[in-house]
Design a protein around this nucleic acid. Structure first.
Lengths: 204, 204
DNA sequence: CTTGAGGGAGAACGTTCGGTCTACCTCGTG
DNA sequence: CACGAGGTAGACCGAACGTTCTCCCTCAAG
C-alpha cells in the first residue's frame, strides 16, 4: 500500500507496465505478443511484472478493465452535457465515429479480444460479455428516454450498428464508416420515434 | 497431379488436413493452435503437412480461401432463386441470420482473422480485405438493382448491419441478433427505396 | 538502525512453437 | 520391373513461450 512520495496511485512501474501492455495488445493483438516484449518496452524486469500481476492473463484482464473504464468515461462525458435524450444518443454516436477516425484506431478492444478467446468460460471472454452487457443496457436506457418504440429492439439495433462500425473501422475508409454509422443512428431515431409528438423533448 | 483411384480431387490427406484446420481455426482461433494439434486431429504426420503447404501461414490462407468460397456459394445459391432484387437482399439477410443461429457459430471467420492479424501488409489481413471488398461490391450491386437511393450508402449500411450481427452473434442470443438484423435490412429497404413506384419489380 | 517492500539484472525452468530431416513403406503409371 | 509421388513414423533443430528463481540495490517507515 503506502502513499510514497505522492506520485502515482500504484507504483509507477506498474502503470508503465499496464500502459505498455494496453498499447501493444490493442495494436498487435494478444496471443501474438509475449511478456518479453512487454517488459522490454515498459523497461521493467520480468520479476517486476510478476510482482504486480499473477501472470499474463492478469495483465490482459487489467488491460480490458482499463479499456472498459475508458469507454465508460467516454459515455459519461457525453451524459454530462445534459442534452436531449435523442441528442445524447446522437452524441454517443458521434463519439464512436470520432474514435473510429482517430489515427491508430484498431477496432473494438473487446470484439478483438473475443475473437482471440472464443471459449465462453474463459475469464477474458467473460470480461468482454460483461462490458457488452453494460453497453447494451446503457444504449437501451438512452433510447427508451428518447422515446423509442420497443426500447430493447432499438438498443440492440444501436449496438449492432456500433459493432459493425467498430469492426469495419479498421478495414475500410474510417470516414465512410463513420458517415454510415451516423446515418444509421439518425434513421434509427427517426423510424423508432415516428409516432411521437413534436416538442416532447425529454431530458436524459 | 494424377487421378489416382478417382476419390478426391487433391490427395485426401490434404483435404483432411484442410478440413481439420478449418474447424479448429474457426472455433478456437488461429494463433492459439499449433500445427501439432492440427496434424494430430487430422491424423497425418508433420511431413505430410509440409508436403502440401509451405507452412502454417499457407494453411491459414487456404482456410480463409475455403471460407470465402463457402460464402460466395451461399450468395450464389440465393441468386439462383431468381427473386426480385429486394427479395434477393432479404434472402441474403435471412441466409446470414440462419448462419448465426447455426450451432457452432463462432462469428465471421474474416473479422476474427483480422483481429488476429492487424498488420495491413500481412497476407492474411489482405485476404480479409479482398473478401470484404467482394462482399461490399455484391451487396451494393444488389441494393442498386433493388432501387436503393445512393446504392453505395445502402451497400455500406447493409455491410455494417451484417458485420454487427456476425460480430455479436456469438456474444449474445443469436435469435435476437438475427431478428435485429432482419429488422435492420427491412428498414434499409424501406427507407432507401421510399420514392419508388409500387409494382416496379425489377429482377436481379 | 533495522526492516521490508519495490525494483533491477539475469540465469534457469520445462514446454511448446514452426519447421527440417532421414528412413522406410506403398502403390499406380510409364 | 523401375520409378517417383504420396504417405507414415519419429528424431531433431533453434527459438520463443510463460514462469520461477536468486542476488543485490534503494529508500521510506517503524
Amino acid at each position: 500500500m503506502s502513499a510514497s512520495t505522492g506520485s502515482g496511485s500504484t507504483s509507477q512501474a506498474r502503470s508503465r507496465l499496464l500502459g505498455t501492455a494496453t498499447r501493444i495488445f490493442y495494436t498487435e493483438g494478444i496471443h501474438s505478443v509475449g511478456v518479453d516484449r512487454i517488459i522490454a518496452e515498459a523497461q521493467v524486469t520480468r520479476a517486476t511484472l510478476y510482482r504486480h500481476f499473477k501472470g499474463k492473463e492478469d495483465l490482459i484482464l487489467a488491460y480490458l478493465q482499463q479499456a472498459d473504464q475508458g469507454i465508460r468515461g467516454q459515455v459519461a462525458a457525453v451524459l454530462e452535457q445534459d442534452l436531449t435524450a435523442a441528442d445524447t444518443v446522437r452524441a454517443v454516436g458521434r463519439s464512436i465515429a470520432e474514435s473510429i477516425q482517430t489515427p491508430g484506431f484498431r477496432g473494438c478492444a473487446f470484439l478483438n479480444a473475443a475473437a482471440e478467446y472464443p471459449d465462453p468460460a474463459h475469464p477474458v471472454h467473460q470480461a468482454v460479455l460483461a462490458h457488452r452487457q453494460w453497453f447494451l443496457d446503457t444504449a437501451t436506457h438512452l433510447l427508451a428516454q428518447a422515446g423509442c418504440a420497443p426500447a430493447d429492439t432499438a438498443g440492440r439495433h444501436f449496438v449492432m450498428l456500433r459493432d459493425g462500425a467498430m469492426a469495419a473501422g479498421c478495414l475500410f475508409d474510417p470516414a465512410l464508416i463513420s458517415e454510415t454509422l451516423l446515418n444509421g443512428v439518425e434513421g434509427l431515431l427517426r423510424t423508432s420515434t415516428a409516432r411521437r409528438l413534436p416538442g416532447t423533448a425529454d431530458r436524459s
